[in-house]
Design a protein around this nucleic acid. Structure first.
Lengths: 324, 324
DNA sequence: TTGAAAGCGCTACCAG
DNA sequence: CTGGTAGCGCTTTCAA
C-alpha cells in the first residue's frame, strides 16, 4: 500500500530539504517557526513515526531491555515481570520477555537475539547448572542477574534474596508448633542459592536442637515437577510432618502434591516460598517465605537506568509469614 | 571498549571484502568452502552478531511483536502472555509486553512505540471506553484484538471468547442449587463483551424463570477495585445469595471482597471468571467460567505468522466449571 | 536559516 | 567465485 513515511517523503511533500524536516522534528532552534509548524502538522497528518532502526544504527542506545525468566505463570515471576514492565513504562523503556524454561540452550539463544537488536541490558534469572561453565561468562551486553548468581561471572551486578533468616525462622516456627520431622526441598548445593538455603535450614535445625536426617533433605534442579515429585516421595517414604520449600517453582509443585494427596496441613505442615495472594486463602492460610518482589524489580531497573555500579550484589531480606 | 564487530571489521581482519563475509555468513553458495569456514570461525571467535537494525532498515520484517494487556499479574493475562511467549520462542519471534492498565492514553503511546521499532504486529486487549472514538482506528501496524473488540475498527481480526453458554449455565446451575437472588457483576453494555455477557445472564434468568432485579445487576468499567467495591455493595445493600463475575479483573476483586468479608460460599455462592488453578484449592473449590487460554494464544500467534486472514472473528467457547 | 554529504551495518545488484 | 556500489532513515558536520 502506501510507502513508509520518512523525513524525506515529508520533505518532498513540502518541497524542502529533509534536513529541515529533521530539525523541525527534533526541536532544533535553527528552523523558521512557520516551517517547523508546517512540518509538524504534516508529519502528524500523514502519521509519521521516526524509525528506531535508523537511530540504533547511528549509535543511539536502544530503549529495549530483555528479561529472561523461566516462565511468567509462577506468581513470583509474573509479579516481578509486571512490576518491571510498569517501571519500564515509566522510564520509557520497552521490555522484551523471553522464557528460558531454565534451559541453558534457550538462554544462550535468547541472549544472542537480544544482542542482535542491541538491547540496552538484560535482566536474567540464570539457568541452574550450566553444564558448560565456560563461554556464557561474557554475554556481550549489560547483564543483571536476578535471584540466582552465576559463579562464573563475578563482574556482573546481582539482585538477590537474603532468605537465610526466614528459612531459619521457618524451622524454628515449626519446631515451636511441635514438629520434629521437618523435611527440606531445595536446589542442589552446586547453585549458590541452593547452598545458602540449605545452610539456613541446617542452622535452624541446630538452633532447635534437632539432628538432621538426610532422608528428609531432598535437592534437585528446581522445577514444578521436581517439587511435586519429591513431595510425594517424602510423603510416601518418610515420616515427615512438615515441609519447607526453598524455591518458587518447588513450592508450586509441592503445594499441588500436598493438595492432591489431601495431606495439606493435616498430615503435612507446609511452608511455601514466594507467598502469592492465594496462599492466605487456602484452608486457614499457608505459611510462606515472602520475597520483596517490588523492591527487587525497582533495584533491577535502577541498575539499568543509572549505569553506575558494576560488580555489586544487592540483597533483599525475605520474611517468614506465619498463618493457620 | 572494543568497537562493535561488523562484517567490515571481520573483512579487514581476514583481508577480504566485506561482501564475501556477508555471503559466507548467509550461506550463499558463491563462496570458497575454506573461505566460508574461516569467516565463520573468526566471526564466532570475535563474537559477531548481525545487526538487526541494519536488517530492519533494509526492509526486513521485524521479528518483534507487541502485546498490550492491562497487566500480567492477573492469572488469565499471565497465562496468556506465558503461552504467547512460548509460541514466540518457537516461531523465532520476540515479544514486547506493554502494560496499558486499561488506560487509553498509555495504549496509544505504546502503539506509537511499537510503530517506531516497526513491530511486526501487535496483539492487544483494547482499553474499554475509548472516550475519543476516532483516531485509534488505524494503529499503523498489523493489529489483532484480544478478548474485547473495538467497535470502531471492523477490519481488524479479533480473537474472542464466547462465554454466553457458560454464563447462562452458571445461572441455571445456581438456580438448580436453590439460589433465586443471583447477582451479576460485569462491564458496561457500551462494551460489546459487556452487552453479550449481560444478555447471557438474562437469558439464563429467563430460562430459570427468575424475574430480573435491577439492583442485582451492577456494571462498571471492569477492574479489580471495581469488583471488590461492587461485591461489598451487593453484600451490604442487597439480599443476593449468589454472584456471577463476568470478567477477569472483576472476578479477582470480587473474590477478595468475599474472602475479606468472610461470606464466601457461606452467605454468598461465587462464580468466578477465568479459573486459575487455585480456585479449586479454596475451600471445597470455587465455581468458575473457564476460558481456553492456550487456544486463544495459539490462534493469536497463528494470525501473526500466517498473514492470511484480515477482518475475521475467531471465537472460543468458555465452559462452566462446577465445584463445591 | 537552510542544504549537501557522509556514514552507521547490511545485502541486492552489477562488474569483473 | 569475488569485489564494488548504492541505498534503507536518520543526524552530525561542514558549506552556503
Amino acid at each position: 500500500m502506501s510507502k513508509r513515511v520518512t523525513i524525506k517523503s515529508i520533505a518532498k511533500d513540502l518541497g524542502i530539504s529533509h534536513m529541515t524536516v529533521s530539525r523541525a522534528l527534533t526541536d532544533n532552534p535553527n528552523v523558521q517557526k512557520e516551517t517547523r509548524e508546517a512540518v509538524r502538522r504534516h508529519a502528524q497528518d500523514v502519521g509519521y513515526v521516526r524509525s528506531a532502526a535508523a537511530g540504533t544504527m547511528r549509535g543511539n542506545v536502544s530503549p529495549i531491555i530483555g528479561l529472561l525468566v523461566p516462565n511468567i505463570r509462577n506468581d513470583f515471576y509474573a509479579r516481578f515481570a509486571n512490576k518491571l514492565a510498569e517501571e519500564c513504562e515509566a522510564a520509557g523503556l520497552q521490555l522484551i520477555i523471553h522464557l528460558t524454561k531454565d534451559d541453558h540452550q534457550i538462554e544462550r539463544h535468547c541472549i544472542s537475539r537480544l544482542r542482535e537488536i542491541q538491547a540496552r541490558a538484560v535482566i536474567t534469572v540464570p539457568t541452574p547448572e550450566p553444564k558448560e561453565l565456560d563461554q556464557i561468562t561474557d554475554v556481550g551486553l549489560d547483564e543483571i542477574q536476578l535471584i540466582r548468581k552465576r559463579q562464573t561471572s563475578p563482574n556482573t551486578p546481582a539482585v538477590l534474596v537474603d532468605d537465610a533468616l526466614a528459612i531459619r525462622d521457618a524451622v524454628l516456627h515449626l519446631h515451636r508448633t511441635g514438629h520434629r520431622r521437618i523435611a527440606y526441598l531445595g536446589a542442589p548445593v552446586t547453585l549458590s542459592s541452593g547452598r545458602h538455603r540449605l545452610d539456613a535450614y541446617r542452622s535452624g535445625l541446630k538452633q532447635a536442637g534437632i539432628v538432621e536426617d538426610r532422608r528428609l533433605v531432598l535437592t534437585d534442579s528446581p522445577s514444578i515437577s521436581m517439587g511435586n515429585r519429591l513431595t510425594r516421595k517424602i510423603l510416601s517414604e518418610t515420616d515427615a510432618s512438615a515441609i519447607i520449600c526453598a524455591g518458587f517453582e518447588i513450592s508450586e509443585g509441592a503445594l499441588k502434591a500436598a493438595i492432591q494427596t489431601e495431606t495439606l496441613n493435616s498430615r503435612l505442615a507446609f511452608v511455601g516460598y514466594g507467598d502469592p495472594d492465594y496462599y492466605s486463602w487456602i484452608g486457614r492460610g499457608l505459611c510462606s517465605i515472602r520475597v520483596p518482589v517490588d523492591e527487587l524489580a525497582e533495584c533491577a531497573i535502577s541498575l539499568v537506568t543509572s549505569d553506575k555500579p558494576r560488580e555489586a550484589e544487592f540483597k533483599f531480606a525475605a520474611k517468614l509469614i506465619i498463618r493457620a
